[in-house]
């Protein structure tokens, strides 16, 4: 046992296990259907809201684009969002109408879009009581991504709330804030929000550290 106070305090804190890319075959582990493999009885996937869930039902779609402007077809994405009242529901239970957590992936099909079926989240407060605009927290993994990237998806039709969101306002460049705002589309009564995630270069998406 080490004598108390005999070593620098930093040495008493373990180092995190290092990250490695999820690689091109992430689907076999975390998105079985996308790998073309049989699924288990319960999978964590992209239907976060069942029809009876409270709130405005929406689809969230988009692509992931690399620094050459090409589609990233092997990205794996996790979503974490509040319910329509602005509360996170940590308990993941497929029997519940709504789950705060979901997974999706871009595809090998031509459009290569990810899709989440969810409800529009309510707004969540920061620890010191400021109101954040409604948002979905997005984590992205892919081949060639050594450590996952965190971003957020905000909603175009929440302009007033977006203008006052303390997190959006942490992004110094107003132009860059726009990279987080999904565009609203309506088609046959279905509401869809679209956000393309640009990993690098012109229009590069804002990624967060926290």
């Amino acid at each position: 046992m080490k004598q108390p106070n005999s070593v620098p305090a930093s040495e008493l804190v373990l180092r995190e296990t290092a990250s490695q890319t999820a690689g091109p075959y992430v689907h076999i582990g975390l998105a079985l259907a996308a790998a073309g493999n049989p699924v288990r009885d319960e999978e964590i996937w992209n239907e976060m809201a069942r029809p009876e869930a409270e709130g405005e039902h929406i689809e969230v779609v988009g692509t992931v684009i690399d620094g050459n402007g090409d589609l990233v077809r092997d990205a794996f994405i996790e979503a974490w969002q509040a319910d329509s009242r602005g509360d996170y529901q940590p308990e993941y239970d497929l029997k519940k109408p709504f789950n705060s957590f979901g997974r999706t992936a871009t595809t090998f099909d031509r459009g290569s879009e990810f899709i989440l079926k969810t409800v529009k989240p309510g707004s969540v407060k920061t620890a010191d009581g400021q109101t954040m605009a409604p948002h979905i927290n997005v984590t992205l993994f892919a081949r060639g991504v050594n450590i996952h990237l965190h971003t957020r998806l905000y909603f175009e039709d929440e302009a007033e709330a977006n203008a006052h969101c303390p997190v959006l306002n942490r992004v110094e460049s107003p132009v860059r804030r726009q990279t987080l705002i999904a565009k609203r589309e309506e088609e046959g009564g279905r509401v869809r929000y679209r956000l393309d995630i640009k990993l690098q270069g012109e229009g590069e998406t804002v990624f967060f550290d926290f």
């Binding site: 892919a142 050594n146 690098q200």
Partner: peptide, 8 residues
């Protein structure tokens, strides 16, 4: 990683 790493 070359084309998939953020510059910002």
């Amino acid at each position: 990683t070359v084309a998939r790493s953020p510059n910002q």
